[in-house]
């Protein structure tokens, strides 16, 4: 029997975006990361080549993060107190990208200053050759106050700056445009809102190859299906030719899964939850793999074991066997 395999031929493709710049390209990175470029749904190799594999980023903070699960704290140990060492540890663990999150305060509980922020970014850039995503603490005024000097001080590095949100994107986009950086736009789990933010940012003249979108997701058990479907829909719209959804997707299974009770709490939980540390890693891994199936181009993780496991899945999914 001969069967005609149904193959989708899509009119649209995802924008290719390169993070980081080497010395020749005007930066100081020893490695750059290229994502996007898909012309079909995730890993449908029988329809079209997948030009770039999904990338695993590791999340780290400007100082020891307050609310992190004990499982993570035990795993990382003392590097949590030193951003430069932490970044190196991430790289050693196999990260392809570093996401540096700023908290509202420094290690001594003083509010962060633009100077502190710039110094921290520089220290991380020196410690690792990986491309870098820099995210402010999420308060408009502070984000703008630190991200602008960071953008100025690292001109040409093709950092990813964020978060751009609907009510607060102009300053960050302008700083990124002036200094050859990229931006990360985040919208709350809604296809239209994601698209709207992309329209607003490109309307400012920011080229599409400098935007990554974070459509937000939930963790396993905590709304992952919303994020999952929003990502599938965004990717379908992109392939159907909707230019304003044709941007690579970055999501945070690490952040989302490690704030759940399953990952955070080890005692006084039901026996049916099983081993705490292993459960935490399963939670992060299952969340990440599911989102990769839905179209994630970058997953940001927290645990090195999750990184190993997710990477193995990506290896397998990228293996383009003839079918």
């Amino acid at each position: 029997m001969s069967i005609e395999i149904p193959k989708d031929k899509w009119p649209g493709a995802v924008q290719t975006v390169t993070l980081g710049a080497t010395a020749e390209q005007g930066g100081t990175r020893t490695k750059v990361v290229t994502i996007g470029g898909e012309q079909t749904l995730p890993f449908m190799h029988f329809e079209s080549e997948t030009p770039n594999r999904p990338v695993i980023a590791m999340e780290m903070s400007s100082s020891r993060p307050g609310g992190w699960s004990q499982v993570l704290q035990d795993t990382w140990g003392d590097v949590l107190d030193d951003p430069a060492k932490w970044a190196q540890a991430c790289e050693q663990a196999g990260a392809e990208l570093i996401v540096l999150m700023f908290g509202l305060t420094d290690a001594d509980d003083n509010p962060i200053t633009p100077d502190f922020a710039v110094q921290t970014v520089k220290a991380v850039l020196e410690a690792t050759g990986l491309p870098l995503v820099v995210l402010g603490p999420g308060q408009v005024d502070i984000d703008n106050a630190i991200l602008v000097p960071i953008a100025d001080a690292t001109k040409g590095e093709r950092l990813v700056l964020g978060l751009c949100e609907e009510g607060n994107y102009r300053t960050i986009v302008a700083a990124a445009m002036a200094n050859d950086h990229l931006v990360l736009g985040r919208t709350p789990m809604d296809v239209n809102l994601a698209k709207q933010l992309n329209i607003l940012m490109t309307d400012m003249g920011l080229p599409r190859d400098r935007i990554i979108m974070d459509p937000t997701t939930g963790a396993l058990g905590y709304g992952i299906e919303y994020g999952y479907s929003v990502m599938e829909r965004l990717r379908l719209a992109a392939l159907q030719g909707d230019a304003m959804t044709q941007l690579p997707l970055m999501v945070n299974p690490g952040f989302e899964s490690w704030k759940t009770k399953e990952s955070k709490v080890g005692e006084g939980v039901p026996d049916a939850w099983g081993d705490w540390a292993e459960r935490g890693v399963h939670w992060e891994t299952v969340t990440a793999v599911s989102l990769i199936e839905a179209g994630a181009d970058v997953v940001v993780l927290r645990h090195p074991d999750s990184l190993t496991r997710v990477k193995e899945s990506i290896d397998e999914l990228m293996a383009a066997e003839p079918v």
Partner: peptide
């Protein structure tokens, strides 16, 4: 069969198969 594995798998199944 380990509780932590089965728990995560069953929850994912529940999530993916909810009515959107």
């Amino acid at each position: 069969f380990s509780p932590e594995l089965v728990y995560s798998v069953l929850v994912l199944r529940e999530n993916i198969f909810t009515d959107p």
